[in-house]
Nucleic acid binder design. Structure first.
Length: 765
DNA sequence: CAGTGAGCGAGCTTCCGCTTGACTT
């Protein structure tokens, strides 16, 4: 018999807490929820008043069995799941599943994982709060109703296996709407005039003063005119203002801000960040990584203060507690911080080190003094124009937290480099060194990255720290959106230069609209989004979650009955579902592009069985309609008639070579030549499938055939030695094995190969 | 891997949030 059994949610937390509690306590973990709505069917008896049908999922059976055993051997049972809606529900499910006594089971919560906080919690146990549990049940059931009633509508009206949900459907909506904004955006250009002035040379030294004209010029002509004025002008410093300013550090990391910064500073994807953070957490190096709180424990505040004072001195320290701003935050945990703030670095993988250092810096910086800056603005007047120049500069007087950390932003143009203004005086006359008018283009709103999408969802109060990464995976797995790159397009940028009394006009090309790892909607995502907007606008409303959250909060304080809340939501919702099923047609996103210029047949584009497809003609005619698939980056939404017609020019025959036909086309992996049932990729950038000739195709074919011949170094039947991208290797039973350095692969015998295979499998297994 | 677009029908898909491994490459 054990005296006390404490159940927490996470095994790593269990380990830590057991150390603090001593011998009389055994601490075990539930690994999150242990019970959920039945997987089959809806799992809710609506007629009886939304009675949930709970079951222990297969993968939790073992955990539950172990918990049962542990519970039966303990005198007192303490449930220390998190202090939020989900945590309270976990506690209640534990009581139900383990057959515990509601009154005798002690419910406690830890606000932080420190010895003091834990001993304090043990002193004041309570019982489970059923209002809070009911608000969780309402949340769970509402999500199930939304997901399991709308998804089947999509299977019928759009495509099988699709899904809709309170969170994912809004995430898709954001991406679809942003793409449409980008698509309809019209870029405008204007000319920005910048100057480099030379200050007077009192002591023989000339300094450069960079400034920008107070006005932009809409046309090149106007810019030239202004530069002509500048050529004759006398420049005088009109005003100088110096204003002190401060900059404050950002709060410590939450899940969302960690994901954003790790993406911007380290290039980690959202799921990568979570995986690395999980390892740091399990290794006891950081606090829990799924949190919406910016709160730091007293211990962390004190430790950080010590570190800052000893490393940087007293005046760099400023203890702060940040208020969590995000909507719907539940604050069951601390912010993400180093477990031991005095450890500036750790051992581990490169990624672990980098992420840890980021967390350390952010935490420490949050406890440091404001930076003091001095912002100088200078205005320069011209004697012959009302349009003058302005120069702004910033000097850091006291670096404060900047010494350790400065936050990154998503903004594309990195104009925020700090510029130091040279010493100047009011009334000083300046000569120009050169003045440049450069064409600037307005840019469309930026497409979402995984990280900026998380930020937006958090702002809307949609999703939770534990679901940001999975949600982003889901909408990609369903094919609604994809993370893609775009090469961008070249455009001409004009400029006018005034130098040495001469005005010259020039232009160069730059690449605009280049994208790296951005979220793009796919056709099926756009079709599903439009379908949901038409039929379930309430669910995809940006405020839907916030509205229901308000009601969950009322349930949690006993002001609203959870079944009543569900009833009020469900009856109109269910009617909409049935109405949509009965009355709405199948949605294919069809667009008629026009008439075929030669045959006059209708050309349309839509979602077909195997993906987006262009169709010429229809089945009412004598001739069967013709079909062609869209290319990878084309969308149903903005395909033109010309682009559609071009798709029918492929695949095309190049003619007969040695009795066999040679065909060129575009497949999943780009343009190809097919000959004797083998596929040969065309060279990117050099070969165009629409104009490539048989002669060139033969070159490509013989090159690849030669490579393939060279690929096999030796063939022993099951075991083969091949030349790969990373050098020679052995392949055996679909597994690949590296050949030790310094070994000539050509002389290896079958026995040698078996030895290498044996060694490698041992070290792995 | 690089196609497909005739039609029928059975059986399957799906949510959000809380937790980690167990899988394969």
């Amino acid at each position: 018999m054990i005296e006390n059994l404490v159940i927490v949610e996470s095994p790593a937390k269990a380990k830590t807490i057991e150390k603090f509690l001593g011998k009389d306590f055994r601490v075990v973990s539930s690994f999150g929820h242990i019970r959920d709505l039945s997987k089959k069917n809806l799992g809710i008896d609506i007629e009886k008043g939304f009675v949930p049908d709970y079951e222990v999922p297969k993968d939790k059976a073992k955990v539950v069995a172990e918990l049962r055993k542990a519970a039966s051997e303990a005198k007192n049972i303490w449930i220390a799941s998190d202090e939020d809606r989900e945590g309270e529900a976990i506690a209640w499910h534990l009581i139900k599943v383990l057959d515990l006594d509601v009154q005798l089971t002690k419910r406690i919560v830890f606000h932080e994982i420190t010895k003091d906080a834990i001993s304090e919690a043990i002193k004041s146990p309570r019982t489970v709060d059923m209002n809070l549990v009911n608000s969780q049940q309402a949340r769970r059931i509402l999500d199930r109703l939304v997901g399991f009633e709308i998804s089947p509508v999509l299977w019928k009206k759009v495509q099988p296996s699709l899904s809709a949900g309170r969170v994912q459907s809004v995430a898709v909506r954001l991406i679809v709407e942003r793409e449409r904004e980008v698509f309809s955006f019209k870029s405008e250009s204007s000319f920005r005039v910048t100057a480099v002035f030379l200050t007077g040379k009192d002591d023989g030294k000339q300094a450069e003063l960079r400034a920008e004209a107070s006005k932009k010029f809409p046309t090149e002509e106007e810019a030239v005119k202004y530069l002509e004025l500048c050529r004759e002008a006398v420049f005088k410093i009109n005003t100088i203002t110096v204003k002190p300013g401060t900059r404050s550090p950002a709060p410590p990391f939450t899940t969302s801000t960690l994901q954003q910064e790790a993406y911007r500073k380290l290039g980690f994807s959202v799921s990568q960040t979570m995986a690395v953070a999980q390892r740091l957490y399990e290794g006891g190096k950081i606090t829990y990584m799924r949190t919406d709180s910016t709160n730091l424990s007293k211990l962390a505040l004190a430790k950080s203060h010590e570190v800052i004072v000893s490393e940087y001195g007293d005046k760099y320290s400023k203890t702060r507690q940040f208020k969590t701003k995000s909507k719907g935050a539940q604050e069951a945990h601390e912010a993400i911080r180093p477990a031991y703030p005095d450890k500036q670095s750790i051992t581990g993988s490169q990624q672990e080190k980098m992420l840890y250092e980021l967390i350390w810096k952010r935490t420490i910086a949050s406890q440091m003094a404001d930076a003091q800056v001095e912002r100088t603005s200078i205005s320069i007047e011209l004697n012959n124009s009302a349009v003058g120049f302005n120069a702004t500069g910033e000097v850091v007087v006291f670096d404060g937290f900047l010494r350790v950390y400065s936050e990154s932003y998503d903004s594309e143009n990195g104009d925020d480099e700090r510029y130091v203004i040279p010493p100047v005086k009011k009334g000083m006359l300046l000569n120009y060194d050169k003045i440049t008018a450069t064409e600037r283009f307005t840019s469309p709103p930026p497409r979402y990255t995984e990280a900026s999408l998380v930020k937006k969802l958090e702002e809307l109060g949609i999703g939770r720290p534990s679901t940001y990464a999975p949600t982003i995976s889901t909408i990609q797995n369903r094919g609604y959106v994809a993370r893609e790159d775009r090469p961008g397009e070249k455009r001409k940028v004009r400029s006018v230069l005034l130098d040495d009394n001469k005005i010259t006009q020039a232009s160069k090309t730059e690449v605009a609209g280049k994208e790296k790892s951005k979220l793009f909607p796919k056709d099926i995502g756009m079709i599903v989004n439009d379908f949901l907007m038409e039929n379930f606008s309430e669910i995809v409303d940006y405020n839907f979650t916030a509205d229901v959250e308000e009601q969950f909060d009322e349930i949690a304080i006993g002001k609203l009955k959870w079944t009543g809340m569900l009833e009020k939501f469900y009856s109109p919702f269910h009617k909409t579902v049935q109405n949509t099923l009965e009355k709405k047609d199948k949605k294919t996103g069809i667009r008629v592009l026009g008439k075929h210029p030669e045959t006059g047949e209708t050309v349309s584009v839509k979602m077909g069985r195997y993906g987006p497809v262009v169709q010429i003609g229809d089945s009412t005619n004598e001739d069967k309609p013709k079909f062609a698939s869209l290319l990878k980056n084309q969308l149903i939404e903005n395909l033109t008639l010309d682009e559609a017609l071009l798709l029918f020019r492929l695949p095309r025959s190049l003619g007969i070579h040695e009795d066999d036909e040679m065909v060129v086309g575009i497949g999943k992996f780009g343009p190809y030549v097919r000959f004797r049932n083998k596929f040969y990729s065309l060279k990117k950038g050099t070969d165009d499938p629409y104009i490539v000739t048989m002669e060139r195709a033969l070159e490509i074919i013989s090159e690849k055939d030669l490579n393939e011949k060279q690929k096999v170094i030796n063939d022993f039947g099951e075991i083969r030695i091949l030349n790969g991208r990373y050098g020679p290797y052995i392949t055996f039973e679909k597994k690949n094995f590296r050949i030790p350095k310094g070994t000539d692969p050509a002389v290896l015998t079958k026995e040698d190969c078996l030895k290498i295979i044996g060694n490698n499998s041992k070290s792995k297994g």
